[in-house]
Amino acid sequence: MIKLIAKRLVSMLVIMFIISLIIFTIFDSDKMKAQIATSELGGFQASALIKNPEAYAEWQEKNGLNKTYTEWASGILKGDFGHSREKNTDVGPLLAERLGNTGILAGLVFLFMIPIALVLGVIAGMKEGSIQDRVVTFISVLTTSIPEIATAVFLIVIFGLFLKWFPLNAAMNSGWDWSALVLPVMALVIYDFGYVARMTRASMADVMQSHYIRTAVLKGLPKKRVILKHALRNALIAPFTVIVLQINWLLSGVVVIEVIFEYDGFGKLLLQAALFGDVDVIQAATLVAVFVAVFSQIISDVGYTLLNPRIRF
């Protein structure tokens, strides 16, 4: 077990190292620097600046673009993520605050999505091909087919404009407001639950056909007991992996939803930085996103081996 965790951690470090190298090289390239100069100074001044090597070097120095990889990486390891030109603050605290906001959003999504998905999946998988199975399958195909933007639009129109139950956006200019989070969370839950529900359904249907369930049924155990005591425990192993890996998926969806609802989270920060050319923010946000994704993968692997009695080290 420890060997497995150690192996996964080492591979995570290697991946993080390579990805940091890629991210650094992308933003260290001349093309990217010229692009940043253009976005900051305008095309005419930027091209004049680039033709003058001394002034260009000075400009790079001022904007912290002339760091070597070791300088940059050691800064990151010490917790110095650089300086945001757009917001004129240090990236570290900014990113921490935004990640906190996104964490609240993602936490609420998981809180609602997991029970809904598991219950629907188990109900559908209990009896393959029954009406309940068909209904759940159809709903999950339908909801996962509607992209997040469209889900968000429909929710805004129905609950925000027509019924006027919830605020249209989650910008929260006048303090924290939980009701503003309802629509973003709902949009993400609707988009995400279908996949987990289908995985649970497949796993449940698989277990229901196994010999030990047949034995339990033939033994005359009540159906409720067969499902709750015997089937459920084994059926939930596979969905666990999917749920943890869903974090990676959620990070993508969060970007879109945060932009639509103007919620001050990590995804909106990343997009604004990308559109503005705010290098330090893009680098830091990408690294954090990859770290979360890789780390969740490790949790999923380790958790799977812990849960599955057939795999032992």
């Binding site: 390579i18 990805i19 390239s29 093309k31 998926w249 990070l251 970007v255 994704a293």
Partner: peptide
């Protein structure tokens, strides 16, 4: 491929299209 799959898709898109 593992390295590329470690990126959340939207983050990878944003990175490539910014570049």
């Amino acid at each position: 491929c593992n390295i590329l799959l470690s990126f959340p898709i939207m983050v990878l898109f944003i990175l490539i299209l910014t570049f």
